[in-house]
């Protein structure tokens, strides 16, 4: 089943086209990496998919339910109650973690479950503790975000997103704020999730990681998808621009 469908998505900032007619569909269990130079629109695409930005045109559909569509050249969004349900289908992990600094690690994870999803507190805590255990953070549940390393913070934010049991998880450059050592521990977590067939869309600059983890890689530039395919296809491409970009980043 198609979990996510984006059709002809357009987005402008101050008259400048950042996304120009992007279409993308994601099957259940697929892991997709989006690569491309800065300013290519990768993050904007993710922000449109997660509705942090409103699209200027196109269609956004989760699990067959329309979140946004185009009428009379204008993008309209679904009703508040529909959007609320659609919001529960996805999670997002930010580059800068965005944990809530005044909440403990445990409360960062459980609070949305309790106050948004109305899950009993006991169940929420059990769910959070299980996830923290899986991510090797059991001893940190009472810590506050400032007491954690960047890698630990990012793992907590992954746990926070996973706790809501989303159908699809987005990552917006999850390791760009981390040093190489901490990057490894976060990428390891994402690889584990990929093994469990979590549906994921990952914007990343880690080429080796993208190659290992993805079922499909999308290369974006200047607001359009320039190339896409399996890692083998993309890394073996004769598309000069893609070669140049990949070669550049992997230092080959």
């Amino acid at each position: 089943m198609k979990l996510l469908e984006m059709n002809h998505v357009k987005k402008e900032f101050d008259g400048l086209g950042v996304l120009k007619d992007i279409s993308l569909s994601v099957e259940e269990g697929e892991v997709i990496s989006i690569i491309g130079p800065s300013g290519s629109g990768k993050s904007t695409l993710l922000r449109c998919a997660t509705m942090l930005e409103n699209m200027d045109g196109g269609e956004l559909t989760y699990m067959g339910e329309k979140a946004a569509w185009e009428t009379d050249c204008k993008c309209v969004y679904a009703s508040k109650s529909d959007l609320k349900r659609i919001h529960s289908y996805f999670g997002l992990v930010f580059q800068s973690f965005n944990l809530f600094p005044h909440y403990s690690v445990l409360k960062n994870i459980t609070d949305a479950l309790v106050s948004v999803d109305k899950i009993p507190k006991k169940e929420a805590v059990e769910r959070a503790e299980k996830l923290l255990g899986q991510l090797g953070l059991s001893d940190k549940k009472d810590a506050y975000p400032y007491q954690l390393s960047g890698g630990q913070q990012q793992r907590v934010s992954i746990a926070r997103a996973l706790a809501k049991q989303p159908k699809i998880l987005f990552f917006d450059e999850p390791t760009s704020a981390l040093d190489p050592e901490l990057t490894v521990e976060v990428l390891k977590v994402i690889k584990e999730l990929a093994k469990e067939h979590m549906t994921m869309i990952i914007v990343t600059h880690e080429m080796q990681f993208a190659k290992e983890v993805s079922d499909r890689i999308i290369f974006m530039e200047e607001g359009i998808i320039k190339a896409q395919g399996t890692p083998e296809e993309l890394f073996g491409t004769d598309n000069e621009r893609v070669q140049e970009f990949i070669g550049h980043l992997s230092g080959a």
């Binding site: 509705m51 942090l52 800068s96 965005n98 809530f100 005044h102 106050s115 999803d117 926070r160 997103a161």
Partner: peptide, 24 residues
């Protein structure tokens, strides 16, 4: 980012302000 994290987690505007923003 605090507003965005709250929005993605499904907090409504009132919850976001009183639980996440105001205490900070």
């Amino acid at each position: 980012g605090q507003y965005e994290a709250a929005k993605v987690l499904g907090y409504n505007k009132v919850q976001t302000f009183f639980k996440i923003i105001l205490p900070q």
